[in-house]
Each structure stands twice: as structure tokens, then as C-alpha cells.
Simulated scan of single mutants.
Amino acid sequence: MRALRISLVLFIVLGGLFVLADRVAVGFAEDEAAGRIKSTEGLADTPDVSIGGFPFLTQVVAGELDDVKIGIKDYEAPTGGTGSAAGTIRIDDLDAEMHGVSFSGDYSSATAGSATGTASISYAELLKAANSEPKEIGFGFSARVTGLSDGGNGKIKVAVAVTPPGTKSSQTISVLSSVAVSGDTVKVHADSLPTLAVKLAEGRIRSITDFQQKIEQLPGGVKLDKVEAAPDGVEISVKGSDVRLVG
């Protein structure tokens, strides 16, 4: 009986030591991976990396991690163009969950079999893609987009300032718009056009109300999937396969 008790105590102690060693190892791996991702993606700040699954050490032996979560704040995504036309758009929060992550022994390379995640862009940031400078739309009328906000039911409310001919005072009208993803581009399209004092060509009005924002080179090569309006901005779903995390 005494031998059984001793064996039980030893089992508990060894088990505790294994768990401790496993947690120390996973903490080291998370820090190492975060540093590598920061360097690979050229990030200003170190991302949050969380490695799931237990025990971690058996996953290391197998050479593949079940689940890795990555969080990046204030990511500047390229918007296409070259030279003076090149620009970026700030993604406030980019969170991705990677599955089936294979890696090298020194963590110098890591690739996820699949990835899903979300990216959030504020309305103030998305507004930069809209026509915020006054533009002639016909018969002396000019218009520009002055603000974006949540329109409810998955719609974006687009505030448009319209200035009649011969005056400097403008009237602000609101347009409910749908938002969708097409390839690497987020597109905002007015569901219906505002009624003005005169009948203007639809194309001229849509040159103000409708706009789009290209988003390129997301970390690891993940792609835009879906987008919807949210209270503080747009929430974008991203996904990818054979996503390169490091190397």
C-alpha cells in the first residue's frame, strides 16, 4: 500500500513537472514565433501569438501544431498603385486562427494548412477611399462624401453634402449602401440614389456615392472573403490555405 502511495506521489510530481516544462516550452515558442512574424511582415509592434492544444511538446515531436492564433493591431495594408499613387489603409485589428501549422525545428519557417480570421477597418479610415473633395455632378451641382456610419441591417450610411449652383451652402443627405467583397477589393454601392431638385445622370451621382477600396498583401497571403457593416466600421472575414507565417 505504501509503495502504491509513493508511486502515486511520484506520478503526480512527474506529471506536474511535465506540465510545467510544457508550458515553459510553449511560452518560448510563442515569443519566438511572434518575433519571427514581426520581422517577416515588417510590423511596427510585436503581434500576439497563442499556440493551442495540449500537450505542446508532443506536437513539436510530430512537427505540426493543431491551432495557432495570431493578433495584429494597426496593420498598414497596401492599397495598390505605384510611386505617388501608392498608399496604405490601416486595419485596426487583424485576428487569424491557423490550423495544421507545420514548422522547422528552429522556427525559421512555418506554414498553416488553413486559416480563417477577421479584420476591422474604422469608418474614418474607409472614408479616405470616398470622394471627399467637391465634384461637379451636372447642372452646376457639386457633391462630396462627408461621413460614413452604421446604417443598421448590414448597411453603411453614406453622408453626402450637395451644393446647389450659385451658392456655397450645402445640404447633407444620407444614402444607405451595401458593402461587398470582390477579389481584393471592398466595394460600397448605394441601394438607391437621392432625389435632387433636378434629374441628374445616375452615373454622375454614383461617381460620388459609390466607391471602392483595394486591400492587398495581408499577412501570410490570406484573402478577403466577406464584409459587413458594424457599429464602428466594417468587419471583414479573411481566409486562406497554405498560409506562410514565417520564412
Rank of each mutant, 00 (worst) to 15 (best):
S241Q: 11
L176Q: 15
T40Y: 12
R244Y: 03
E202V: 05
L57Y: 14
K187E: 12
G140A: 04
I51G: 01
I215M: 07
G220I: 02
S102I: 03
L196N: 03
S50Q: 13
Y107P: 03
L4C: 07
V238N: 07
I173S: 15
D210L: 10
K187Y: 02
G166M: 14
V145M: 10
D74N: 13
V24K: 04
T79H: 05
I91G: 02
A3I: 11
V145R: 08
D232M: 05
A86T: 01
S50C: 08
L193F: 05
S149Y: 00
G63W: 05
G220S: 08
D92N: 15
S50G: 08
V101H: 00
D106G: 06
A29Y: 12
T195C: 05
P231H: 06
L218R: 03
G105E: 10
V13Q: 03
K157L: 13
A161Q: 13
R23S: 09
I89T: 12
V222T: 01
I121Q: 07
E202I: 01
A29R: 09
S177N: 03
A3T: 05
D48I: 15
N153R: 14
S149N: 04
P194E: 06
K168L: 08
L20K: 02
D93M: 09
Y107V: 05
A180Q: 13
G80Q: 06
A197Y: 00
G203D: 09
F11S: 11
E64S: 11
R23Q: 09
P219K: 04
Q171I: 11
V246Q: 07
V186Q: 03
E133F: 06
S178T: 11
S108N: 15
L94A: 00
S178P: 01
K38Q: 14
F141S: 00
A180R: 15
R244E: 07
I70R: 10
D67S: 14
I6Q: 13
I121V: 14
V145I: 12
G27K: 08
A190C: 07
A161C: 09
G53K: 12
I215T: 04
I72D: 02
V158R: 09
I137M: 06
D66Q: 13
S169L: 06
G117K: 02
A34Y: 07
P194S: 10
K199S: 15
G247H: 14
V68D: 00
F103H: 10
G81T: 11
R5G: 06
K223P: 01
A129H: 06
I205E: 02
E64Q: 14
S132K: 09
I208Y: 01
K199T: 14
Q171V: 13
F11Y: 08
A62C: 03
A161D: 12
G16W: 01
D93W: 10
V145A: 13
G183N: 13
E235P: 01
V222D: 04
G81C: 07
A96R: 04
A110N: 04
E32H: 10
G100R: 02
Q59G: 06
A44T: 12
F211Q: 07
K168W: 00
L245A: 00
M98F: 09
K73N: 13
S39C: 01
G53F: 03
A110R: 01
S178F: 04
K69S: 11
I70H: 04
D95P: 05
G152W: 09
